[in-house]
């Protein structure tokens, strides 16, 4: 019988699933808050995303963790999904498709992680 290699996909698939769940639960409301409500001054108190507020939030252990979880899981979710999609439109799995998707996810995670750590606690 043909010997088959165990797939390492569970790592990427797991991140895809966790990120997809996170995006399904909080994605629409996050976009509404940061991209529509706050910029237009709707619904939420004035200064919801003021420098002082956001700095305090991002310096708080839970706040920092939440921001990182959102960025990290969203980008790995989307990266994995696009990796499949590239295969489906004829850009088959290889170094190019991996750099475009998982590579991007790794870079974004790193940038966000470094920036968040730089904000201190």
């Amino acid at each position: 019988m043909k010997t088959r290699k165990r797939s390492n996909a569970p790592i990427f698939w797991g991140l895809f699933g966790a990120g997809g769940m996170m995006a399904a639960l909080f994605g629409p409301m996050l976009v509404f808050i940061t991209g529509i409500a706050v910029p237009l001054g709707l619904l939420l108190p004035a200064g919801t995303m003021s420098y002082a507020n956001m700095l305090a939030f991002a310096q708080n252990f839970i706040g920092k963790g939440f921001i990182f979880a959102v960025i990290f899981l969203f980008i790995w979710h989307a990266g994995h999904r696009i990796h499949h999609s590239l295969h489906e439109v004829g850009i088959h799995p290889g170094i190019v498709s991996k750099l475009l998707t998982y590579g991007l996810a790794a870079v974004v995670s790193l940038v966000a992680g470094v920036a968040l750590l730089g904000l201190g606690f």
Binding site: G19, A23, G27, L30, V31, T34, G35, Y51, M54, L55, A58, I67, V70, I71, F74, I75, H77, A78, G79, R81, I82, H84, S85, E88, L104, V108, V111, A112, A115, L116, L119
Partner: peptide, 21 residues
């Protein structure tokens, strides 16, 4: 599946925000 492109776009917006902060 294509909604992932928009998730990427939003994540980039947030990441820029964190860097600017």
């Amino acid at each position: 599946e294509g909604t992932a492109l928009f998730v990427i776009a939003y994540t980039l917006v947030l990441t820029v925000g964190v860097v600017r902060l």
